[in-house]
């Protein structure tokens, strides 16, 4: 009552309603300034940007659906196995068997969607935590990939030569430096932003993560939401795998492990609530950029690369703590108004 109404301006309420974005932006600016200072002009110019943006694009494409899953209250560890499984599928189809590239791409993406579907079914039909289930499907996918690759190709690495159109669409370096994956990342951002914040399905995702029982009672098809989200994250991981094999023209069984933790890190730094029910696409994008700047900036800074891990750890804790604080402010907003 004592507060003048003018204080309820747009700036204030956006700050209060999107707490993770505000905190995240501050973190992003601080981290960029820090590495710009240490890394100097090289980091601030094209080489620096291309290095952290290509990391951001790859991990970002996976972090978006992993973030949606976390908002819905689930984890997906299997992305780390889907990625190499998809690259190898593409390489085996189009390289080893020499079939057209588009068939390889379709095969690789299908692997991701199928593993995602299996994840979704298992998570929504059983009461086993999704962490355990997706660790299981990760090992299953990894074992199958390794076994089948050796059986078919006789080695753990397979080569392929993509056709020019596929190369231009998925494996090109724009200006000789910027990977085309960045453009795809932007497309993924637009689509996932639409799903979460504009379409009615976004409401279902928040509701499922906020209180699954109430969501089901409200008539939301919670199982379909879960299965759909796992298929999306499987697709995204496979997409990155396929784009890697098209870019580098070879696929390795061991690729992809780093994406498991990195994608979760981006999502959490981006302010998605670990227990589900809250988060935003802008937050995830900010988290991804922050993570990638630290991840690559460390090489430009001349610091011991191990410090990078420390910075990521500190950022993670700071993000979780500050999001808690901001969220409480957001919850109080309004009850004070009356």
């Amino acid at each position: 009552m004592s507060r003048p109404t003018a204080r309820h301006g747009v700036g204030l309420s956006v700050f209060q309603r999107r707490p993770e974005v505000t905190g995240g932006l501050i973190g992003l600016v601080v981290v960029y300034a820090f590495f710009a200072y240490l890394g100097g002009s090289v980091f601030m110019q094209a080489p620096g940007w291309s290095s952290f943006l290509s990391v951001a694009a790859e991990v970002g494409i996976i972090a978006l659906p992993v973030g949606l899953l976390m908002i819905a209250g689930e984890l997906d560890i299997s992305v780390g196995a889907i990625l190499p499984a998809a690259s190898l599928t593409t390489a085996v189809i189009s390289g080893h068997y020499d079939l057209p590239t588009y068939m390889g791409i379709a095969g690789g993406l299908a692997v991701g969607v199928i593993v995602g579907y299996v994840n979704g079914l298992l998570v929504s039909r059983t009461k086993i935590p999704s962490l355990i289930i997706t660790v299981g499907t990760m090992f299953g996918t990894m074992g199958l990939t390794l076994g089948l690759t050796i059986m078919i190709a006789g080695s753990t690495g397979v080569f392929m030569t993509p056709d020019p159109i596929s190369k231009a669409l998925l494996g090109q370096f724009i200006g000789g430096m910027f990977r085309v994956t960045m453009v795809w990342w932007v497309l993924f951002i637009v689509v996932v932003f639409y799903i979460l914040h504009i379409s009615p399905w976004g409401n279902w995702i928040f509701a499922v993560g906020g209180d699954p029982e109430s969501a089901r009672n409200a008539g939301i098809p919670t199982r379909r939401v879960t299965v759909g989200l796992y298929m999306l994250s499987g697709f995204a991981a496979a997409f990155v795998g396929v784009s890697q094999v098209i870019t580098f023209q070879s696929a390795q069984v061991a690729a992809g492990q780093s994406f498991i933790f990195n994608s979760i890190m981006c999502v959490v730094i981006g302010g998605v609530l670990l227990t589900g029910g809250a988060g935003s696409v802008i937050g995830i994008v900010i988290g991804t950029l922050t993570f990638s700047i630290v991840n690559q900036g460390i090489f430009f800074s001349g610091l011991d690369p191990n410090y990078g891990s420390i910075i990521i750890g500190v950022l993670l804790l700071a993000a979780v703590l500050s999001n808690d604080t901001f969220r409480n402010i957001a919850l109080r907003y309004g009850s004070k108004k009356s």
Binding site: N203, A207, S214, A218, I220, L273, G277, L331
Partner: peptide
């Protein structure tokens, strides 16, 4: 239902229309 029916971290408008947006 007992212990339920609303979503604490959603807005009033979104929570009200959960499932029937």
């Amino acid at each position: 239902h007992q212990f339920g029916g609303t979503f604490p971290l959603m807005t009033i408008g979104r929570s009200f229309f959960a499932g029937v947006e």
